[in-house]
């Protein structure tokens, strides 16, 4: 039995331990916003927040998530109630196919929590742990800058 705290919910899962966190979030909890592409920590699609820090959940065993607060893209906003970072990505269209987008948004969220007033260059480096194969990078940087401005406004 594994106990996880995901998106403010406690769940007990009767699963074997040799599973990755990404796999369990997707297949046992139906959180398909946890995208899995490379399965080796290169692409960042599977990024989730663990105690507020971005983590490649494809490299974590499910038990490593125990006792920690896990947030997936589903935990930060819904189509009817978007997070400001999500709004900013729509407004600057920081995506094309958007397979990578949940990962970028969660990475941005954690980054902006620590760097509320970043430069474009800082954002560009901070967003380099995620791959966008469609190549929306310049618009991703602009999305994060717009999100920063939105968050400063709320703060």
């Amino acid at each position: 039995m594994v106990n996880l705290h995901v998106n403010s919910r406690n769940v007990d899962l009767d699963i074997k331990p040799h599973r990755t966190l990404a796999d369990v979030l997707r297949t046992e909890m139906g959180l398909i916003g946890v995208r899995v592409s490379c399965s080796e920590g290169e692409c960042g699609s599977c990024t989730v927040l663990v105690d507020g820090r971005p983590c490649t959940s494809c490299l974590m065993l499910v038990n490593q998530g125990e006792g920690k607060s896990i947030v997936t893209i589903e935990g930060i906003g819904t189509p009817d109630d978007l997070d400001p970072v999500q709004e900013a990505f729509i407004e600057e269209q920081g995506f094309q196919c958007a397979f990578c987008t949940p990962g970028f948004i969660l990475t941005a969220k954690a980054f902006l929590a620590e760097n509320p007033n970043p430069t474009h260059d800082e954002v560009s480096v901070a967003m380099s742990g995620n791959i966008c194969r469609c190549g929306a990078y310049p618009y991703i940087v602009r999305s994060v800058m717009r999100a920063a401005a939105k968050l400063r406004e709320f703060a």
């Binding site: 920590g41 971005p54 490649t56 901070a126 380099s128």
Partner: peptide
């Protein structure tokens, strides 16, 4: 090293 998301792990 690796990526920011993997450096946390």
């Amino acid at each position: 090293m690796c990526t920011p998301q993997t450096r946390t792990i």
